[in-house]
Design a protein around this nucleic acid. Sequence first.
DNA 1: CTGAAAGCGCTTACAG
DNA 2: CTGAAAGCGCTTACAG
Lengths: 348, 348
Amino acid sequence: MTTAPRRAARRPTLKDVAALAGVSMKTVSRVVNGEAGVAPSKVASVEEAVRQLDYRPNVTASSLRRLDGRTAAVAALLEDLANPFSAELHRALEDVAHEHGVLLFAGSVDESPEREKRLIRAFTSRRADALILAPASSDQTYLTYEVPEGTPVVFVDRAPVGFEADAVLADNLEGARRAVAHLIDHGHRRIAFLGDLAAIPTARDRFEGYQQALRSHGMPYDPDLVVHGLDDAERAAGALPALMKLPAPPTALFTAQNDITVGALRYLQAAGLQRTMAIIGFDDFPLADLLRPGVTVIAQDPTAMGRAAAELLFARLAGDVGPSRTVVIPTRLIVRGSGELPVPTTTA
Amino acid sequence: MTTAPRRAARRPTLKDVAALAGVSMKTVSRVVNGEAGVAPSKVASVEEAVRQLDYRPNVTASSLRRLDGRTAAVAALLEDLANPFSAELHRALEDVAHEHGVLLFAGSVDESPEREKRLIRAFTSRRADALILAPASSDQTYLTYEVPEGTPVVFVDRAPVGFEADAVLADNLEGARRAVAHLIDHGHRRIAFLGDLAAIPTARDRFEGYQQALRSHGMPYDPDLVVHGLDDAERAAGALPALMKLPAPPTALFTAQNDITVGALRYLQAAGLQRTMAIIGFDDFPLADLLRPGVTVIAQDPTAMGRAAAELLFARLAGDVGPSRTVVIPTRLIVRGSGELPVPTTTA
DNA sequence: CTGAAAGCGCTTACAG
DNA sequence: CTGAAAGCGCTTACAG
């Protein structure tokens, strides 16, 4: 019978290293933290003791006593870690944090202001050094007393309300305006807007872009062509039959969010309308190029947004005390076919 | 000029609460931790002081002194947080952790054993209570001394080697066997295998399933039809021209991973072969149902895998000391058209 | 260049 | 039922 290897029972401490190396705890601390001014012979014996004991500093304990209280961990509160936009953003944050030797806590806020507040409490009570937040709440004044001074907060995807902070945003209004202008350029005059919950700021900006495009082209705004509150693909698909039954149905759709685009595409394909109804979606998605026709989209760049947010954050942690900055990451129109379908020349 | 609200400068401590409530620190500690046996009047005055000062316990400090040293944080090392499989798994872990009031650290190992080891060190030095690991390394014996006793480790997606631990795995071999048997049932005799890096255990299992299916149907194994090492979509697409130039090219493809399936589909569509070449992919992906033909897949269930892993983990944290368990989450064949294309009846 | 003492915010182990 | 003292693993603020 073989004996399973035993796990390390108790982690050795600074004190154990000091005893083995025959120096004081303070000297071990200096060596471990790379401070200058320790005799080379002592450095060597400390390093040898560290190796022998396989000593690992307790980051938690050191942050407790340090003046700056830094834990080398930052927290990200994103919309939903399972959704591709949040996942890519998260990955970009991880990459920058990793370069700085900092670890990342993550949580999904799920469009729930209560959940957002619970997570903020959980992360601040673990003394995260900084927060990245894609808020679900409509007002973040509460952060003033929830987040201690000296803990930077950077907003991503959604702008802060009632709280001064850096922010990284996509160009939602301009992207939407461009999508709708593109449809108008292809001859469409009846363009439907299918949007997410109207309470979500990005959804509002995209709706505003839709309206601006109509206005600047001298086109009337028809509320019958507008549907808000579509918070998943099924609901989006379910909204289309009513639009199609209008006396003057739309000839083009602007779907203002990923899942809405997918739901609309499912409906169009089931109804055999995929080569008749023009569609442009906000947000790119994998395989959009493989569908027939390919799906024209306004693409965001979550990786660029994540990197920019993380860089603002680390600049703050490095001591930048300038006024809050807002970085806008541009969107891109990707032409693939569905947004270039002409107005059908039927005798309706 | 209005004054911006000031942020809380210093967090109040247990001591501050004790002073305000006129009791000892120990009594405050008892109330905060919900321990019984405190006079109701003292409970009330402590609770009032907590409210007035907006006191938040410092989780980090309490874990330092506690005997169990629990930090109420667990770490997940996944393949790549940006990839949908890892992202869904991560989200499922988050949900279970959230139910337990536990926070989640996450990191991507990126098929790099070095990165895996760095992350393990980072997480253990932050004293995570437990680890969830989808390893990139081929051997995890090193965990024996890297992970302290009493810190549970649960493997997901890949089985441990050289280390005793719980594991949650997909049924890779059986799923692959079933995919290939399905193609054989539809008349195919020349079935290509397109796989990821052969060093990845799941890739090996899927290859083994491919071989077993051929064997059990009395079909020869032809190495010309097998390509390993396809680690992204472009590489997968690039492998197909050579297969098509074989004297007897395949009539069906088994693509053993998500990105490989996508790469193959891009090639087939560019070559106009999407209605000629049968294909079954391992891993489902969004919109597989909207392509024409729909893409037949072997679907994994990352959400079920994440939940199962988290439940094993919390059972260990709750004191379960039984022998290691391995949970296998079954895969599902989803028939959509591409896997049911017949063998073309050409005169080749 | 080096170390002894005090303290970060909390819990433990006691004593009353 | 309550609290004073010690200590978790480390760094600070000194003194030499």
